[in-house]
Amino acid sequence: MTKAGDVLLFGALALVWGTAFTAIEIGLETLPPLLFAAARLDIAAVIFIGAVLLGRLRWRPRTKADLALILSNGILVIGAHFAFSFIGQRYVTSGVAAIVLSFTPIITPIIAIRVLSTERIYATDVIGLCTGLAGVIAIAVASGSFDGQLLGMGLLLASAVVFALGSVLTERWSAGLPTTALHAWSMVTGAVFLHATAYAYSGATLRTVTWTASAAAALTYLGIFATAGGFLLYFTLLNRLGATNVSLINYASPVVATVFGAALLGEQITTATVAGFALIVVGFVLCNIRPLWRLTHSIWNTDERDRLLERDEVRIQGNVYKTETDSRNSLQPGD
C-alpha cells in the first residue's frame, strides 16, 4: 500500500464497515434481525441494479458458472452470513461482533484446504487456527455470561464459517458476467433468501414492523454506505492492491467498531477483549505468513520494486523473476 490515495480508500472502507456494526446495534433495538438484514440488501440491490442499467452492462446469466456464483454469493456469502451475524449481534456488543467476525480470514484457508485440491496445509495454519480460536474463547470467557453471550458468539462464528465457505466455493467458477452485474444478482438473491427466512422465522414483513427515526437512519446508512459503497470500495482496492493487502481490512474495521461502540453506545472495552483480538490477529498472521512475507518484502524492498528490469527479467505482482532459456522455459525468482 504505497499510494496516499490507496491509504485513503482503505481508511474509508474501514470506517464504513466498522461503523456498520454500530448502525446494526442501533437498528436492532426496534427491528427484527432477519428483516433488518433483508431490508439492508433491498437498498443495496436497487443501487447495484441502477449501476448495471446506467452502465448498460450485460446482466443475463448465460453459463452454469454464473448461476453457481450467484447462488453461492447470494445464499452463503451474503444471505446466511447476514442471517447469523444480525441475530448473533443481538447478544453481544458491536465491538465484540466485529472482533469475532475477524476470525473469517483464519478459517478461510482451512476450508480451502478441504475444498480446493490445489491448497496445502502447513503447521502454521494449524497453529494459527488454534491461536485464533483461543482469542475467541478468551473474549467469551471475559464476557462473564455463558447464556446469551455464548449463543451470540456461536452464531457469529457460524457467520464467519459460511462466509468463508462461500468465498472458497467461488474459486471453483469463473464468472462470465461483469462484476457489477454479478453482485446485483447476488444482492437480490440474498435479499429474497433473507425475506423468506424472516417470514418463516417470525412472520415478520416490512409492513408489520414499527419504524423509528433511528432505525430508518441506521438502515439507510447500512444499505447505501456500508453495503453498496463498501463493496464498491472493496473491489476497487482489490483490483489495485490485491487480496492480501485488502484482507487486512478485517483487522482495521473491528478497531473502528470498538471505538465507535464505546463512544456512541457506551460499550466497554475490556483488557480481555483487547487480548482476545490480539490473539486473533496473531492467528491471522500465522495462517497467512507466506503471502504476508511476500507483501512485506515488496513494500520495504523499494529498490528492487522500482528498478528497471533487465532483458531476461519480468515483474509479476511486484515480484521479479529471471527467465531462463533452457528447454523448461521456467521462471526463477530474481535476487
Results as ranks from 00 to 15, higher is better:
residue 3 K to S: 15
residue 4 A to F: 14
residue 7 V to Y: 10
residue 8 L to Q: 06
residue 14 A to N: 14
residue 14 A to Q: 05
residue 27 G to L: 03
residue 35 L to C: 00
residue 37 A to C: 07
residue 38 A to S: 12
residue 38 A to K: 01
residue 40 R to P: 04
residue 42 D to Q: 02
residue 54 L to D: 01
residue 58 R to N: 13
residue 63 T to H: 14
residue 67 L to A: 14
residue 70 I to G: 12
residue 77 V to H: 03
residue 78 I to W: 06
residue 78 I to A: 12
residue 79 G to S: 09
residue 82 F to I: 02
residue 82 F to K: 03
residue 85 S to Q: 13
residue 88 G to V: 03
residue 92 V to S: 10
residue 95 G to V: 06
residue 105 P to F: 12
residue 107 I to Q: 09
residue 107 I to K: 11
residue 107 I to D: 07
residue 115 V to M: 14
residue 121 I to M: 15
residue 127 I to Q: 09
residue 133 L to E: 06
residue 139 I to N: 09
residue 140 A to I: 10
residue 145 S to A: 14
residue 156 L to M: 09
residue 167 S to A: 15
residue 170 T to P: 03
residue 173 W to L: 02
residue 175 A to E: 08
residue 177 L to H: 08
residue 181 A to L: 05
residue 182 L to H: 08
residue 182 L to C: 08
residue 186 S to V: 00
residue 189 T to D: 02
residue 191 A to D: 04
residue 194 L to K: 03
residue 203 G to M: 00
residue 208 T to I: 01
residue 216 A to E: 01
residue 220 T to C: 12
residue 222 L to M: 14
residue 228 A to S: 12
residue 229 G to I: 05
residue 232 L to K: 09
residue 233 L to E: 11
residue 234 Y to D: 03
residue 237 L to P: 08
residue 237 L to E: 10
residue 237 L to M: 14
residue 243 A to P: 09
residue 244 T to R: 06
residue 250 N to W: 15
residue 253 S to V: 00
residue 257 A to M: 08
residue 262 A to G: 13
residue 268 Q to S: 13
residue 270 T to V: 04
residue 273 T to L: 13
residue 274 V to D: 04
residue 280 I to L: 10
residue 281 V to G: 06
residue 282 V to N: 07
residue 282 V to R: 07
residue 301 N to M: 02
residue 301 N to Y: 03
residue 305 R to N: 05
residue 314 V to S: 09
residue 321 Y to F: 15
residue 323 T to W: 04
residue 324 E to I: 12
residue 332 Q to R: 15
residue 333 P to K: 04
